[in-house]
């Protein structure tokens, strides 16, 4: 069998090019079929991707929410994740100016990158199993290029210490 091994898959990169084109077509169908549940569907989409990836890869540095988010972004999307903690100490903000999922989408009624928020939420909450000191989080996507913002924003709410 010429099946790819997990080790090879973790090493390989691919073009981003097709992902946003295919994803935006799928989202168009979601909007058409489930107009009242788009956000729920997109969150589920990201959670499932996260769950699947976690069966093969987990961040090495699980010291903090920030480190998990940054390592996950770097490994999966090959880009830096500018994350900053708000003064309240309970909220982190991730701003993404190169979001793939919002690529060339304009004037949308939904944040096309909602799956990235739920994916990160799945990752951090899963890492709590290995590092119980990590807080539980909830991620809310509040801005997106698809909706006309100049960048995508995922707000990471820390729910408990």
């Amino acid at each position: 069998m010429w099946e790819i091994t997990e080790e090879e898959l973790l090493r390989l990169k691919c073009q981003q090019l097709f992902v946003p084109l295919i994803y935006s077509e799928v989202v168009a169908r979601i909007i058409d079929r489930w107009p009242d549940n788009v956000e729920k569907k997109l969150r589920e989409f990201g959670r499932r991707i996260g769950k699947g990836i976690l069966s093969m890869w987990i961040p090495k540095n699980t010291d903090s929410v920030k480190s998990i988010v940054q390592e996950t972004y770097k490994f999966l999307l090959k880009q830096k994740a500018p994350v900053e903690m708000k003064k309240d100490g309970r909220t982190l903000i991730l701003r993404d100016k190169k979001c793939i999922l919002c690529w060339e989408v304009t004037n949308a009624n939904f944040h096309y990158c909602t799956p990235y928020g739920s994916l990160l939420e799945t990752f951090v909450n899963k890492c709590r199993e290995t590092n119980p000191k990590l807080p539980k989080i909830w991620v809310e996507t509040t801005k997106s290029r698809a909706k006309g913002d100049s960048y995508c924003e995922h707000v990471i709410h820390i729910l408990e210490e």
């Binding site: 073009q15 981003q16 699947g52």
Partner: peptide, 19 residues
Amino acid sequence: AKKMSALMMTYDFLECVRI
């Protein structure tokens, strides 16, 4: 080209198919 992890792509496609 801008790239991403093949792992991410393969799971992204799987979820598209699921939908």
